[in-house]
Nucleic acid binder design. Structure first.
Lengths: 231, 231
DNA sequence: CTCTTGTGTTACACTATTGTGACGGTCATG
DNA sequence: CATGACCGTCACAATAGTGTAACACAAGAG
């Protein structure tokens, strides 16, 4: 299983080390900085899977970092957990409204922090949390690399598997062919766009074998998405 | 108006009413029960968008309800926030590990609970966290490329979709046919002006199917706009 | 009321987009 | 190194969506 990339932004270095230790023990890959500006650069360069963000920073307030992260394309969807000494209700609400996914007040239990991090990750990137991905009656076991529909195993080729996985990670989202080429085939591949159609076709065929509803929706001139009810 | 469906499972009825009041004020549609078995039935019948789940229930423990919800196809992906009097770290961690998305200990601030609920929803169903375009009873989820009126899905072609999106982005604004050609078709297209009428017609037809009010207003010699009470 | 202008409605030919099956090549794997 | 699974591409078929014209209808001006 690939490790989850964690970006820890915290200027109390003793605390940072403690947190790092707990997360590394849980197979996270931890990057750390105490500086807001630097955090933004690091996030831009290598998109983390999760950000732990201290509210009080030297250069740039945590809340500002949070806002900036939400603005940039590559980090707009990265989950953020705010860490803070402030326990005021209004602050917590403000943090959540600005786009944080969770909010933990100091002093916190590192184990609970890890549990919360996993809960958030499970939601956003289930595959990283070692969770089974599922949508309707389709279930993907990312550890065993197996896919079932209605309890029956579905044989998939590697590309179909990655394609389905991508859809399962963002259930319901419509992806353009271009976007799918980027995410599933890789940023730099010079593959014909229509190749996507063919693999969608193969994926459909495999998934619908023995069923009469099609869980892949074609959105004309936009792309494809998962959908429970074939419209 | 399409609201987020909230299932509240809580056997302290005074508390339940308080929570209900706060969520309804925020445009949630709240269903309530104090019984675990009943909660499962309700969730099965009408899949909620979010579940608030008390840990201590009469029939079935909250944790068991949580587990059952995760098993059923239609509720496997529904986010769950656990409510509990227990503040023990181990309990919190256990709740999160079992698949809860968040965990709030009593006594909690209702406002914070609402903020947390929204944070979770924003992640799972952006369309329900106020990030969808809407006007009156028409709602557009730009991520899933879906349009609903009064909760019922409306099938639209690509051009109708773009046209409606444009109107929704400037609610109430009147656009001339020329302006619409520019914005929706592109300012270099050499399309007949009357084509706009035809697409307006198609959009109307699709949106008004099964309703008797027309939300598109014709402004004679000026253009079209969205309007709640156009006839 | 009648004329003129603007809008609603429909049918239809045409275009764009997507579905599908076949094919040759490649790459692991035994 | 032989074999089979898998891949990307293409050509053609099927389908959905588009623009236009023609006519019907409605609203205001005089």
């Amino acid at each position: 299983m690939p490790k989850a990339q964690l970006l820890l932004v915290e200027d109390d270095s003793a605390l940072a080390e403690l947190v790092r230790w707990h997360f590394e023990r849980e197979e996270f890959d931890v990057q750390h900085t105490g500086d807001g500006e630097e955090a933004l650069l690091m996030a831009k360069e290598r998109t983390p899977d999760l950000v732990l963000l201290d509210w009080m920073l030297e250069n740039l307030s945590g809340i500002e970092v949070c806002r900036q992260l939400r603005k940039a394309d590559n980090t707009a969807n990265v989950p953020i957990i705010m860490l803070t000494a402030r326990g005021e209700e209004d602050d917590r609400i403000r943090g959540l409204e600005i786009g944080a996914d969770d909010y933990v007040t100091k002093p916190f239990s590192p184990r609970e922090l890890v549990a919360r991090a996993k809960a958030v990750l499970r939601r956003v990137r289930p595959a990283l949390a070692g969770e089974a991905l599922r949508f309707g009656d389709v279930e993907m076991d990312t550890v065993a690399h197996k896919v079932k529909r209605g309890g029956k195993q579905v044989p998939l080729g590697p590309t179909e598997y990655r394609l389905l996985k991508h859809f399962l990670e963002y259930p319901g989202h419509v992806f353009s062919r271009e976007r799918l080429l980027d995410s599933v085939w890789g940023h730099d591949s010079d593959i014909e766009i229509r190749t996507v159609d063919v693999h969608i076709r193969r994926l459909r065929k495999a998934l619908n074998e023995g069923f009469d509803s099609d869980i892949i929706r074609t959105v004309r001139s936009a792309g494809y998405s998962l959908d429970q009810d074939a419209v």
